[in-house]
Simulated assay, not measured.
Amino acid sequence: MSETTQVGCACGQTRLEVKGEPILVSECLCDSCRAAADRLAVLPGGRNILTSYGATPCAEYRKDRVRILSGKEHLKEFRLSPDAGTRRVVAACCNTPIFLEFKGAHWLSVYLHLWPDDSRPKSEIRTMTGDLADPSGLPGDIPNLKSHNASFFAKLFWAWAGMGFRNPKIELAGKIDA
């Protein structure tokens, strides 16, 4: 449990430390994750974080197991719309997407592109394949779920219980438009 991993943005100014194993590692294929990734990829210096089949890979970590080591002043929120319940957090120093946060959530979905290829956590499931017009082209290496299953929510619930049902707040340096 005490093992830590450091990950960071493309230019190295923004660094995070994640502690222990993630709650789960997933690839999301929902419309909003794909739309946000497309919009963030066109920022100056931005990059495509989607897999070849359009998924957004993330490691879900309890908020109390993610620490910002440097570059907090660069972290800015991006929302698909002003009333969106999710915010993507970008390191504005180089426009690298860092994590996704759901409103009221106790976890962060840390984008897997932050890890070097040789140490990147392996995805366990793909979710929200029901948003695709034709999911038949998805790889069959892990479960391809139409939405979220009970196991997905159970893992999140037990992680929240392990945190004493707290939801730490993360302050950011501002907003970006994409």
Rank of each mutant, 00 (worst) to 15 (best):
V110Q: 01
R126M: 02
Q6Y: 00
K122F: 08
H74A: 11
A36C: 12
P143F: 07
A84Y: 14
V25L: 02
K63M: 15
G140C: 07
K63G: 13
P135R: 05
S119N: 12
T56G: 01
E171T: 11
M1P: 13
H148A: 13
V90T: 05
K19F: 00
E3A: 15
R79S: 06
Y111F: 14
K19Y: 00
T14F: 04
D134V: 06
G137S: 12
C11Q: 08
H148I: 02
N149C: 10
W107N: 13
L156H: 14
W115C: 05
F99D: 02
I142L: 11
P82N: 03
A154P: 01
S136I: 00
P121N: 05
C33M: 03
L29Q: 13
I170D: 04
S52K: 14
A84R: 03
C11S: 08
L80N: 10
N48I: 03
N149I: 09
W160G: 05
I23V: 14
P121S: 02
G20D: 10
H74G: 10
R34D: 01
A84Q: 09
A59W: 04
A84S: 15
R34A: 06
L75C: 03
Q13H: 12
M128I: 02
R120L: 01
C9G: 05
C9P: 06
A91W: 03
K146T: 10
A59K: 04
S109K: 09
A92M: 05
G71T: 09
P22E: 04
L24R: 08
D134E: 00
C30V: 11
H74W: 14
R39Q: 15
M128E: 14
V18N: 07
W158N: 08
E124L: 04
S26I: 09
T5W: 02
D117S: 11
A41S: 14
S109Q: 10
E27I: 13
A154G: 07
R126V: 04
T51E: 01
L100D: 15
D134K: 05
R120H: 09
T96G: 05
